[in-house]
Nucleic acid binder design. Structure first.
Lengths: 200, 200
DNA sequence: ACAGCATTGTTGTCGCCGCCTACATTGGCG
DNA sequence: CGCCAATGTAGGCGGCGACAACAATGCTGT
């Protein structure tokens, strides 16, 4: 019998993208710990060393995943922002977009914020991460200009908002809180953030 | 030549505790990823299978580490709480204790909140985690009784405070923010939390 | 005292992993 | 059209987690 002609050409065409797609699928289904380059290669139908041509090591693949995660998160935040809206609906929308992304991509979010990235891509990742905060920075700047928000160090004000939202996302993601409960209580949460815990 | 008599008796005495101590040291120095049962065994001077007698698998060891982490965190929070103090200094003290623990034990904190625990110890861990929130629950209850804090669903109010503090700790821990900067801005952060972002 | 047993530690092995090197195939450029 | 860089393959190395079979030890009941 003549050997079957290979159904797939020797060169894959876009192995890098295929690997990233498969990796993200595995990440979503079985978690970061279950991600192995060899299994990834098997799933993609290439040899166990092929991924090494596109990612110098496993961490490089994780970095690439994290980067694409930030890109999607930033896109989601940008789409959700309503620069013309009043403060409360605007920040609520941003927060909802952030928490929704977190709940939909818990493992990816953990990866994005895991403090173990290669130094070089680290700068690229840091840029993307700062861009995520960018929506909140803009919001605070606009609101301060309109007098809708307390004056004072914009960085501190932004941090207060971002930390609250990120903390909520983290607690919803790591199983401490039920994601639906967090999303359901989001409006109230933002209200408390804006009006404070002290009675007025 | 007669073989050297073993300097250490065949039975270690308290291998479990020794493993946990060594593991936490490694965790602090080289991170979770660098934790291997075999290296742990070597460092402790036992065979590579000995840890298996005390932890059924690697996850069981991680669970035990996380549990001890919660115990120390809860102790730190309990010590830092000043039930007689006014709201703002009291919550600031708690927040400082929480963030300080986070900054001093970043890898451990990540482990504590990693959503990958064995189901059985999971309940034990969940209990310990709820205990951590307990300090904040108490604080909110007291403050509501004294009228120092907004009325309404105590759970929502507690969550607002806890999410803010946890988010701050997370951002300080994962490299997004400089830990010193977070600790330095903590008083202001708590003030914003209490008085809100809206001008009064 | 001591036999029997559960506990705890050891040795050896299996399969999987990440990473490396040497080699094969391919596509593109001069 | 020939050469070279890019991309994929095959094989191997050391380390890992898990398991099984075996050995040393301490405990307990009589």
């Amino acid at each position: 019998m003549a050997p079957m002609p290979p159904s797939r050409p020797y060169h894959h065409g876009d192995l890098r993208a295929a690997l990233l797609a498969s990796a993200e699928r595995t990440l979503r289904e079985k978690g970061t710990a279950a991600l192995s380059l060899r299994e990834l290669a098997r799933d993609t139908g290439v040899s166990h060393a092929a991924p090494g041509r596109h990612f110098k090591d496993k961490q490089a693949l994780l970095d690439a995943l994290a980067l694409s995660g930030f890109e999607r998160l930033n896109q989601a935040l940008a789409s959700a922002d309503l620069p013309e809206a009043a403060l409360e609906p605007r920040i609520t929308g941003l927060a909802r977009a952030y928490v929704t992304f977190a709940v939909d991509n818990p493992e990816l979010l953990e990866l994005m914020y895991s403090r173990k990235h290669e130094p070089d891509i680290g700068t690229e990742l840091a840029t993307a991460a700062e861009l995520s905060l960018g929506s909140f920075v803009l919001l605070v700047a606009d609101a301060q200009r309109r007098g809708e928000i307390v004056q004072g160090d914009p960085e501190a004000v932004t941090l207060a908002a971002a930390a609250g939202v990120h903390g909520l996302a983290a607690l919803a993601t790591n199983g401490t809180l039920r994601p639906e409960a967090v999303l359901a209580g989001l409006d109230q949460h933002i209200h408390l953030l804006l009006y404070g815990l002290k009675p007025r």
